[in-house]
Amino acid sequence: MTGAEIGVFAVAVPAVVFAGVSKGGFGSGAAFASATILALVVPPGQALGIMLPLLMAIDLATLRPYWRRWSWPDARLLVLGALPGVAVGAALYRVAEPDHFRLLIGGISLAFVIWQLGVRARLFRPPRGGLSTGAGMFAGLVAGFTSFVSHAGGPPAAVYLLSRGLDKTRFQATTVLIFWLINIAKFVPYSFLGIFTVQTLMLDLLLLPFALLGAWLGVVAHRLVPERVFFAVTYALLTVTGIRLIIDGLS
């Protein structure tokens, strides 16, 4: 490896483990922080290409522990809404410049932090009784789009699922199923858009053990680690990296 490749690998390893922990145990809402962090050291498109195969591997690793513990009607609704969102993301990718994606990923990161802090401060509250079917389709549309352009589909999906009153494990299992299917849908347009390269796939092979380690840790942490501690770290990472990406995109 060259010095630059070693630097990318050094940043990618903790980012990938973090993604595995988030997807394996905490609803995947913060998993996109890994792509945000990687976008600091590689072009945004390359960061997306590195992360998708690893996210798909994490999906497979976490399906078994949560098998059939999900809410299939909610998962189906969000996935059906996500498919046109993925198509919109693919169309935007053809016309956007790398700096546009830095701004978009940075903005999504900060919006996620603001939303979560607002929910915890009770400034925002999911509607009681659950969102409507139409709102669920819209949440799926937004999740599909943000998942395509920044692997950040977790927050809009979570807004809908939280309104459904699912328990912690059912919520986690439903999220695992949803993003397993969405990531499969993203793989084909990613391939046609040239997001995958020999370099990204080689790096994926090196990072795969760390992704699976993170997934295992996430399943364990789902039972042991307080969500407050995990998400406090997540918010700090997303705030710093989101601001940095916005500065880089504007400059």
Rank of each mutant, 00 (worst) to 15 (best):
M1W: 14
T2W: 06
A4D: 12
V8L: 05
A12I: 02
F18I: 03
A19I: 02
V21E: 06
V21G: 13
S22L: 12
K23T: 08
G25N: 00
G27R: 02
A30M: 10
A30D: 07
A31M: 10
F32D: 02
A33P: 04
T36L: 15
L38V: 06
A39C: 08
P43S: 05
Q46G: 13
A47P: 00
L48P: 04
L55A: 11
L55Q: 09
I58V: 13
A61P: 13
T62H: 11
P65A: 01
R69E: 15
R69F: 07
W70Q: 10
S71C: 07
W72G: 03
L80F: 06
L80Y: 02
A82D: 05
A82P: 09
V88D: 04
V88R: 04
G89N: 11
G89K: 03
G89W: 01
Y93F: 08
D99W: 15
D99Y: 09
G107W: 03
I108T: 11
V113F: 04
L117C: 11
A121Y: 13
A121P: 06
L123M: 15
F124L: 08
F124W: 10
G130V: 10
T133P: 14
A135P: 01
A139V: 03
A139W: 01
V149R: 04
S150E: 08
A152W: 09
A152C: 01
L162S: 14
L162G: 12
G165S: 07
D167V: 04
R170Y: 06
T175K: 02
L177H: 12
L181K: 04
I182T: 12
I184H: 08
A185Q: 07
K186V: 03
F192Y: 04
I195K: 10
F196W: 02
L201K: 01
M202F: 05
L203C: 08
D204G: 04
L207R: 09
P209F: 05
A211Y: 03
L213S: 03
G218S: 09
V219K: 13
V225C: 10
R228W: 04
V229E: 08
F230Q: 13
V233T: 12
T234V: 15
Y235W: 15
L238V: 07
T241Q: 04
R244T: 11
L245T: 07
L245H: 06
D248P: 00
D248T: 11
